[in-house]
Design a protein around this nucleic acid. Structure first.
Length: 356
DNA sequence: ACACATCCGGCTCTCAGGTA
DNA sequence: TACCTGAGAGCCGGATGTGT
C-alpha cells in the first residue's frame, strides 16, 4: 500500500513560485493578514503589519496566483476577444479600444482569430469557457441567421456566469452591438448619385457575413430609389483583403469596362481596388473611376488619392463592447447600434463624359 | 471494473477570540 | 465596545485511493 508520503511525492509539482503562505511567514503574520494587505481588502490592518507584508512581498517578488484566486472568487481576470483576422485593420482598431478598458480593469485579454470560420468561432468560445473567462467579445461579424452551434456554446458560457457581447451577429441570446451598416451603404449610394454616376460596381467580401450583407443591402436599396444601376453581375465577391479587392476589380472591369464607380465594402479591399485600377487597368482615380470604401481604417486618409469611405468608430466599438460585458447583465438581450457616417475625400468625383 | 471518497493546489472570507 | 488578528472553511475539478 502506498504511503501518504509517496502519494504526496507523486502529486506535488516542483515549483519555486513564492506563495502567500511564504510571504506571511516571512512577515511574521497570519495568512489572512497577508491576504488582506495584498488583495486590497477593505478590512483594516495596522500600518506596521501592512509595511511588513508589503516589504516581504517585494523582497520575495511575490505575485498572487491568479488561478487560485479565480478558484475562490469564481471569476477570473481573463476576457476573450474573438476576431476574424488579427492582421486586418478592423480587428486591430477594435482590439485597441477594447484593450484600453481591459487595462483600466486590470484584465488579461486572450485573442482568437477565427478566419471567417464559424466552427473556429465556436471552438474559441468553448476554450474560453474551459478557461472560465469572465467575458467574451465576439468582434468579428457573424453569419446571417447565425449558427446553432455557436448559439449553444454561447448559452453554455453565459449559463456558467460569463458575459458575451456580440458585434454584428444574429441569433445569439446576448447583447448585440451592430453598426448601422445599412445607413452607411445608403449614404454611399446617395453620394455617387449626387455626383452624377448612373451605374456602379461592387467589390464585396463573403455575403454570408452580417456586416457584408447589411452594407450591400443599404447600398442596393438606396441605389434603386435614386436611379443608380447596380447589376447583380457587377457585384464581385472576394476575400476581405487588399489582394481580394485587387483580383475582384480585375474581374469586374473585364465584365464591365464602362463602370465609372466602384464601391468596396471594406477599406482593405478598397486599397486593392485602387491598386488594380492604377497598376493593372491603367485607370485614373477619381478622373476615370470613383472609388468608395467602408470602415475608415487609418490608412484611408493617407493613400493617394485619399479614400472616400464610411466611417466606423471601431475603437469605440471595442471600448463599448467590453464596458457592456463588464456591466450588469440586462433582464433580456439588447440590440444596440452604433452610428456610421460617410467621409468624403479625394477618391470620388463626378464622372467624365464618354469620349472626353 | 466501477462508484464513491479524499486529497491537493493557493487564495479569500467568515467568525471567534484577543487586546486596548 | 471597537478594532484587529488568525484559524479554518470552502472555492473547483482532476488525480488518486478505497471499497464493493
Amino acid at each position: 500500500m502506498p504511503s501518504d508520503v509517496n502519494r504526496r511525492s507523486t502529486r506535488s509539482r516542483v515549483t519555486s513560485a513564492v506563495t502567500l503562505q511564504q510571504v506571511a511567514r516571512d512577515a511574521g503574520v497570519s495568512l489572512a493578514t497577508a491576504s488582506r494587505v495584498l488583495s486590497g481588502s477593505d478590512r483594516n490592518v495596522k500600518q506596521e503589519l501592512q509595511d511588513r507584508v508589503l516589504e516581504a512581498a517585494a523582497r520575495l517578488r511575490y505575485v498572487s496566483n491568479a488561478p487560485a484566486r479565480a478558484l475562490v472568487q469564481s471569476t477570473t481576470s481573463l476576457v476573450g476577444l474573438v476576431v476574424h483576422d488579427v492582421r486586418d485593420p478592423y480587428s486591430a482598431a477594435v482590439t485597441s479600444g477594447l484593450m484600453e478598458v481591459a487595462r483600466d480593469h486590470k484584465l488579461l485579454v486572450m485573442v482568437g482569430p477565427a478566419y471567417h470560420d464559424p466552427a473556429l468561432q465556436t471552438e474559441y468560445v468553448a476554450r474560453l469557457r474551459a478557461q472560465r473567462a469572465r467575458a467574451i467579445v465576439l468582434a468579428g461579424s457573424g453569419f446571417t441567421g447565425g449558427t446553432t452551434e455557436l448559439a449553444r456554446e454561447v448559452e453554455a458560457f453565459t449559463a456558467q456566469g460569463g458575459r458575451v457581447i456580440a458585434v454584428s451577429h444574429e441569433g445569439l441570446p446576448v447583447d448585440t452591438l451592430t453598426p448601422r451598416y445599412r445607413d452607411g451603404g445608403r449614404a454611399v449610394a446617395r453620394h455617387l448619385a449626387s455626383l452624377g454616376h448612373t451605374e456602379a460596381g461592387v467589390v464585396c467580401g463573403p455575403t454570408g457575413l452580417v456586416a457584408v450583407q447589411e452594407r450591400l443591402r443599404g447600398f442596393v436599396e438606396a441605389a434603386a430609389e435614386l436611379g443608380l444601376t447596380v447589376l447583380d453581375k457587377h457585384c464581385v465577391e472576394a476575400e476581405c483583403t487588399r489582394d481580394g479587392g485587387r483580383a475582384a476589380t480585375i474581374r469586374l472591369f473585364r465584365r464591365a469596362p464602362e463602370l465609372s464607380a466602384v464601391f468596396a465594402l471594406d477599406d482593405a479591399m478598397a486599397l486593392g481596388v485602387l491598386a488594380a485600377l492604377r497598376d493593372d487597368l491603367g485607370r485614373m482615380v477619381p478622373d476615370d473611376v470613383s472609388v468608395i470604401g467602408y470602415g475608415d481604417f487609418p490608412l484611408a486618409e493617407d493613400v493617394t488619392p485619399s479614400l472616400t469611405t464610411v466611417h466606423l468608430p471601431l475603437e469605440e466599438i471595442g471600448r463599448r463592447a467590453l464596458s457592456l460585458a463588464l456591466g450588469d447583465a440586462p433582464a433580456s438581450p439588447r440590440q444596440l447600434t452604433v452610428p456610421t457616417r460617410l467621409v468624403v475625400r479625394a477618391s470620388t468625383a463626378a464622372p467624365h463624359p464618354h469620349g472626353s
